[in-house]
Structure formats: C-alpha cells, structure tokens
Amino acid sequence: MISVIIVFIIFSGVILYNINRMTNILCIQKEIPEERHPKIFRTINIYITILLISSYIEILFT
C-alpha cells in the first residue's frame, strides 16, 4: 500500500512538471500576455490535480 502511494506521488510530480512545461511552451508560442499566465497555469494545474486525485481513488478502490 505504501509503495503504491510513493510511486503515485512520484508519477504525479512528473506529470505535473511535464504539463507545466508544455503549458509554458504553449503560452510562448501563442504569445499570450504575461499577466494571463498565472491564471492559465492555475486553471490547468487544478484540472490536472483533480484528474490525478480521481485516478488515485480509482486505483485505490479497484
């Protein structure tokens, strides 16, 4: 059980890092103004966190 939690936390960190990196590249390519970057990052991070939590719950109860 503990090993599943540790692996999932590491996996989640890698996923969040890659999503933020791709979001930054998107903001640069689409020339989105700097003042909108925090809102975009916050929204995407909330959505990804919800997805990661729901997938952890699904793994936990299957």
Rank of each mutant, 00 (worst) to 15 (best):
M1A: 13
M1S: 07
I2R: 03
I2P: 06
S3R: 15
V4M: 10
I5W: 10
I5N: 09
V7R: 07
V7M: 11
V7C: 10
I10D: 05
F11Y: 04
F11S: 03
S12C: 01
S12L: 02
S12D: 00
S12V: 03
G13E: 09
G13S: 09
G13Q: 08
V14W: 00
V14M: 02
I15Y: 03
I15T: 09
L16A: 07
N18S: 12
N20H: 07
R21C: 03
R21K: 06
R21H: 03
M22T: 05
T23F: 04
I25V: 13
I25F: 12
L26Q: 10
I28V: 12
E31G: 06
I32G: 04
P33Q: 00
E34V: 14
E35L: 15
E35V: 14
R36N: 11
H37C: 07
H37M: 11
H37F: 14
P38Q: 00
K39V: 12
I40W: 14
I40Q: 10
R42T: 09
R42W: 07
R42K: 09
I44L: 15
N45G: 05
N45M: 06
N45R: 01
T49L: 06
I50D: 08
I50R: 11
I50L: 15
L51V: 13
L52G: 00
I53L: 07
I53N: 02
S54Y: 07
S54W: 02
S55L: 15
Y56R: 01
E58W: 10
E58K: 08
I59P: 05
I59K: 12
L60R: 07
F61I: 14
F61Q: 09
